[in-house]
Design a protein around this nucleic acid. Structure first.
Lengths: 220, 220
DNA sequence: GAGTTACGCTACGACCTGTAGCGAAAGAGC
DNA sequence: GCTCTTTCGCTACAGGTCGTAGCGTAACTC
């Protein structure tokens, strides 16, 4: 059979020699190490293989190409993001902005994230992998923060669920997009002052903006 | 001498055979065509050279590598962005968002922009080229829109020039970042509804947000 | 034990990068 | 016109990567 790809989700076979989980972890570790040392453009499959102590062919049995491998290697780093309750929507936003900025400051993510996104514009499978491994996983932070703000009475409850989903998506794009653009495109630091100004702008827009003219509708 | 690079700004020599401007244009055209057909990752210098009808060595005499060439080839597309006066800050923002989205929808920019940004995280010269060729050139739109809004009385005049510059930079990152993230990372369409909702969010935040509690300070 | 699958290894063709060296072409200055 | 300087197209090249194929062996299931 020729059923490679998709390392984690449900190994497609039950019989035969199972794929080594140690090798899996070693490969992802080696990929991150190679990203730190070499960056995206100079990372090669052969180098990752020898770092991980496996054969190059093993990499190709599990991942279709560099990009998919790197997505998996970097995705776990995004799961470190947390959203502790800081008491207000404004503080919650500021907190997650600074966390995200710290994540983007790491050399692995800095060099890899934009590269795989660029690649995904011509690769539907990769786009889907990025969405499931990174994008969708992080949207939960927006959902949690929004629900908290609603419970506090800072944000109104949304009647139309479709509109609510659109709002969540948009807020996610605004936060992640602004931080990424500041950090990688403008190449300026996302420091405390920037995070505070941005959070003020966003929260002001949210509380005075879409669907908010009927301001404090209060909890439930 | 070995003074290649930087094709446009001040040819470093006065004597000798001048660089062909036709070749320059042909190369940039060929680069964009190759981006459309092949995308960033499969674009090769040899292919661009043969499309442009020049020798591969000519490319390397003018650009240090693929990335710098692609930045120059794509940068001119960003100069198409305009900011016609639509009568209100909200409408101006919405207009530029839709223009920027249309630009990012073109295959050349879609595949190239994130790729060169990714590359620039490990290449100081490239970062500077992106900044001067794309980023700084587009910030003017924010400046113009802001001045117009101030003249209309929609936004207050800023006392502190440093703070004003920070605000302009932040608004730029928010707009460009949100659109890029929506279009390329989330891979969802930037349609009229999204543009309207986003503009509403941003303008609400700007008029109710940073330095705006002292609301309508009026012109002059 | 039989069957199945993953593994490490080697080898390979195809391709791309970036440079070197050549003679010829296209200008500037005299 | 002549000389000097730089760019041009061309060919060739070393070095490196990709992704695959084929082999014998290892690991696990039934």
């Amino acid at each position: 059979m020729v059923t490679p790809m998709s390392p984690s989700p449900t190994p497609p076979s039950r019989t035969g020699r199972p794929r080594s989980v140690e090798a899996h972890a070693a490969i992802l570790d080696a990929t991150r190490a190679a990203l730190v040392e070499l960056g995206w453009s100079k990372l090669t499959m052969g180098d990752v293989a020898s770092r991980a102590g496996v054969a190059k062919t093993t990499l190709y049995r599990r991942w279709a190409n560099r990009s998919e491998l790197v997505v998996d290697a970097v995705a776990v780093l995004f799961d470190e993001l947390r959203l502790p309750d800081r008491g207000s929507l404004m503080a919650d936003v500021e907190g997650v902005v600074l966390q995200f900025a710290a994540l983007l400051d790491r050399p692995e993510t800095k060099t890899a994230l934009m590269a795989v996104v660029a690649e995904s514009t011509r690769d539907e499978a990769l786009r889907e992998r990025i969405r499931s491994a990174i994008v969708d996983r992080q949207k939960r932070l927006v959902l949690v923060g929004r629900e908290r703000a609603q419970a506090r009475g800072e944000l109104p409850y949304e009647d139309d669920p479709a509109q609510a989903a659109r709002n969540v998506d948009m807020i996610f794009d605004v936060i992640a997009g602004a931080v990424v653009h500041r950090a990688l495109v403008s190449a300026e630091p996302v420091d405390t002052r920037w995070a505070r100004n941005f959070s003020l702008l966003l929260v002001s827009g949210l509380t005075a903006g879409p669907g908010a003219p009927r301001a404090s509708s209060g909890p439930a």
